[in-house]
Amino acid sequence: MRLATAEINLTALATNLARIKQIAPNSKVMAVLKANAYGHGLVTIAQHLQGADAFAVARIDEALALRAGGLTKPIVLLEGFFEASDLPILLANNFETIIHDEHQLAALEQANLDAPIATWLKIDTGMHRLGIEPEQLEQFYSRLKATQNAKQDVRLMTHFPCADDTKNNKTLSQIQHFSKLVGDKIEQICLANSAGIIAWPDSHGDWIRPGLMLYGVSPMLDSVGSDHGLSAVMSLKTRVIAKRSIPAGERVGYGGRWQSQEATQLAVVAMGYGDGYPRHAQEGTPVVINGKRYGIVGSVSMDMITVDIGAENDSVQVGDEVEMWGENLPVEKVAQCAGTIPYELLCNVTPRVSYQYIKDKK
Rank of each mutant, 00 (worst) to 15 (best):
V297L: 03
N348A: 14
Q336N: 10
L329H: 08
P286F: 11
V318M: 08
I296G: 05
S315R: 06
G291K: 02
G310Q: 06
V349A: 01
G298F: 08
V300E: 04
G319A: 06
P286Y: 10
D308R: 11
S301C: 01
E321I: 12
V334R: 04
I341S: 08
Y355K: 14
I305L: 14
V331H: 03
E327T: 12
E332S: 10
V322H: 02
S354R: 15
T306R: 02
N290F: 03
T340R: 05
I341G: 03
G319D: 07
L346T: 13
D303R: 13
C337L: 04
P342G: 06
V334I: 15
Y343I: 12
A311V: 12
S315K: 13
I309F: 08
P286L: 11
V322L: 02
E332H: 09
T306C: 13
D303M: 09
S315W: 02
L346C: 11
E321Q: 12
T350H: 08
I341P: 00
T306W: 04
L329W: 07
D314L: 12
G310W: 08
I309A: 05
Y355L: 11
L346H: 02
V349P: 06
P286T: 11
V331I: 15
S301K: 05
P330T: 06
G339C: 07
Y294E: 00
M324L: 15
Y357N: 03
T285A: 15
P330A: 08
S354M: 06
E327P: 00
T340I: 13
C337D: 06
G319Q: 08
V287E: 02
M304A: 09
E332T: 12
I289S: 04
P342Y: 10
N290V: 03
I289D: 03
A335S: 14
A311T: 05
S301F: 03
V300K: 10
E323W: 10
A311N: 12
N328Q: 06
V318F: 01
M324V: 15
W325A: 02
L329V: 08
K292Q: 14
M324C: 14
N348H: 13
I309H: 08
N348I: 00
Y357D: 03
I341Q: 11
Y357M: 04
P351Q: 10
V316D: 01
E312F: 14
S354N: 09
P351I: 10
T350M: 06
L345V: 13
V287I: 15
T285L: 05
T340W: 07
Q356K: 14
C337H: 15
I289V: 14
V353H: 07
Q317H: 09
S301V: 00
K333H: 06
D320G: 01
R293I: 00
Q336V: 14
Y294T: 07
V288T: 12
N313I: 01
G319K: 11
T340K: 05
V297F: 05
E332C: 05
L329K: 04
D308Y: 07
V288K: 13
M304G: 00
G295M: 09
V349W: 06
V353G: 04
D320R: 12
I305E: 00
D314N: 14
A335R: 10
P351V: 05
C337Q: 11
Q317P: 01
